Simulated scan of single mutants.
Amino acid sequence: MARKKVVYQEFGNTVPDETPEIVDLPPQQQSPRIQASRSGRKGKTVTVITGLQHSPETLQKLLKQLKNKCGSGGTLKDNTLEIQGDQRQPILAFLLDQGYKAKISGG
């Protein structure tokens, strides 16, 4: 069903944009990708984990576990996890133990 787009409305009810509900998929149904990257970080290497479909709260919990496992800092940006340093192997082992179908991508 197509939504009607309001081009101009002077007064009255404004229709709020609907945000899609984020579904927490179980780890067995997810295939995250782990990649080391330096682009845009002034030469510093970070490990980027993409492809996770969790709510922001669950991603924060997972990020905290990964930071403790690797002994380094990290952040959550646009549903991607970033861990400081080249931590691909420890993150891969941790995610496989949690039941994810994780893979290392890139060079």
Rank of each mutant, 00 (worst) to 15 (best):
A2T: 15
R3A: 06
R3W: 08
K4S: 14
K4E: 14
K4Y: 14
K5D: 04
V7D: 06
V7Y: 02
Y8K: 11
Q9E: 13
F11H: 11
F11Q: 04
N13F: 10
N13H: 01
N13K: 14
T14C: 09
T14F: 03
T14E: 05
T14I: 13
V15Q: 08
V15M: 15
P16R: 11
E21G: 12
D24K: 06
D24N: 14
Q28P: 02
Q29Y: 07
Q29P: 02
Q29T: 09
Q30Y: 10
Q30E: 00
S31M: 05
S31E: 02
S31V: 00
S31L: 00
P32T: 02
R33A: 10
I34A: 05
I34F: 03
G40P: 01
R41P: 05
K44F: 09
T45A: 13
T45G: 04
T47M: 00
I49Y: 01
T50I: 05
T50G: 14
L52Y: 00
L52Q: 02
H54S: 01
H54R: 03
S55M: 08
L59N: 08
L59V: 03
K61F: 15
L63G: 05
Q65Y: 06
K67P: 00
K67H: 04
K69F: 01
C70Y: 11
C70T: 12
G71C: 11
G71E: 11
S72P: 12
S72A: 04
G73I: 03
G73S: 14
G74H: 08
G74D: 07
L76W: 06
L76D: 12
K77H: 15
T80A: 12
E82M: 06
D86R: 10
Q87A: 04
Q87I: 07
R88A: 01
R88D: 04
Q89Y: 13
P90R: 12
L92N: 04
A93M: 14
A93N: 15
L95E: 03
L95R: 10
L96H: 02
L96T: 09
L96V: 02
L96C: 07
G99A: 09
Y100P: 00
K101F: 00
K103Y: 07
S105Q: 08
G106Y: 09
